[in-house]
Write a protein that binds this DNA or RNA. Structure first.
Lengths: 241, 241
DNA sequence: GCATATTTGTCCGTATGTATA
DNA sequence: CTATACATACGGACAAATATG
């Protein structure tokens, strides 16, 4: 355990563990790997070799396997028996299904705008501002992240832990598609102004208008992403397996 | 592995593995444990000792840990660091949140009744019939199970894998509350006729009426469960920890 | 199509840290 | 405060499945 702690510190994990509540190694490893996947460091389709990760992180195979199982459970990885784990590749049906979920959850949350606390709306505004700032600096990846925060904050209106958790995972899954389509700018830039418009409607606490606007927003986003996605898939990977 | 297979067969696992696609031991163990928990064999609050389960199932410690981590991820178990896993005890807030999710998901599904295929409606009817049959035989536990199927089938109207999966887990989680309140009859019997009424509205493809009815249904169910739950908690466990 | 190398799936043993009686 | 029971994590081993030449 001493050596393990040293290695954990080396890859920048010690803070969480040292300062606030500790957690098991497997969970921390899962966090690291989840970040790597959602930020696009591992491209969908990539095979993850246990050996190399074990070596890189300085942990035992068992611990890694626990972590990978969790991520497979979150649908970020696909576990093929006796073949190993791969970063999941979404089908277009998967993408459509994720948007179906988003429409239902986000619209339901928006309908609660009347009863939502001020802080919940403030969180949405913060995310919008975060995106605009990132756009000014041309950091399109961060614009994407801010966009996730924006929609996560929208779900926060419902005041439900379960829904927030679900949304978090849904967006993480959807990110798998973004990393196949590599042009972050064209994916997210169009939505900066629409985020701002939606925010205005929410600040006016107009549930009906907000729901309508959000529905169109998501319809457009789905259409655009699906288009870019099928294009990218054709190019990047003629043989999918 | 030979001995392991023999033991697995002994606890009735061989079918799935032999007939349709194989899966890893950890996943099969997770299935067994999930069933045990959702059917109430392990009561919420129970501490699960790795050693005894490992022995009972004839598997290695590590394999069990993979399985338990998954169930903790599904919120059926709670992992306390260095203390082990416990069957989760829902708070009343947890129950309320689960109903919030149900209202959103199930109502959204019901709104899709216009576009739903006949088979989806048939599945709902089958579940209603299943419940009525179980009630005639006074098998109240099975009535509860049929009720889960009924609501699961309702979500099937939306035609979304993700939502069905979410609903499945939400209901599994909610079952933790049912097992604290032990009177299955009083919990489920009142809803047999309401299931039938709701079914009628759905068969008439009247989305508005169905949503209204379902909302009242869930409000009542929540109120009733919360009442019975707080009563049961007071009695059964003066000290909760 | 076959022999070989690689990788996964699973088990066992063990050392160390942590919580509780 | 000590003892004990238990969880955490590691390493090694080997069979089975899969990829490779």
């Amino acid at each position: 355990m001493g050596a393990d702690k040293a290695r954990a510190r080396a890859i920048g994990l010690a803070r969480d563990q040292a300062l606030l509540g500790r957690s098991s190694t497997a969970l921390r490893v899962a966090d690291v790997m989840r970040d790597r996947i959602t930020e696009g460091y591992f491209i969908p389709g990539t095979r993850l070799l246990e050996e190399s990760i074990v070596e890189a992180l300085g942990i035992s195979r068992h611990t890694l396997r626990e972590a990978l199982r969790l991520l497979a459970h979150e649908r970020l990885l696909v576990h093929k028996l006796n073949r190993g784990v791969f970063v999941r590749r979404l089908t277009t049906d998967d993408v459509a299904d994720l948007f179906r979920v988003r429409r239902i959850i986000e619209c339901a949350a928006v309908r609660e705008i009347g009863a939502a606390p001020k802080e919940a709306i403030a969180a949405i505004r913060d995310a919008a501002v975060e995106g605009e700032a990132a756009a000014r600096e041309q950091h399109w990846g961060e614009v994407g992240t801010a966009n996730m925060h924006f929609h996560q904050a929208i779900v926060g209106l419902a005041g439900s832990h379960h829904l927030e958790d679900l949304m978090c995972r849904t967006l993480a899954e959807l990110r798998l598609a973004f990393h196949v389509v590599r042009e972050a700018r064209s994916l997210f830039e169009p939505y900066l102004s629409r985020n701002r418009e939606l925010l205005d409607t929410l600040q006016a606490r107009d549930a009906r208008a907000a729901e309508k606007r959000l529905t169109r927003y998501l319809d457009d986003a789905e259409r655009q992403l699906l288009h870019a996605y099928t294009e990218a898939e054709k190019k990047e990977s003629p043989a999918n397996h």
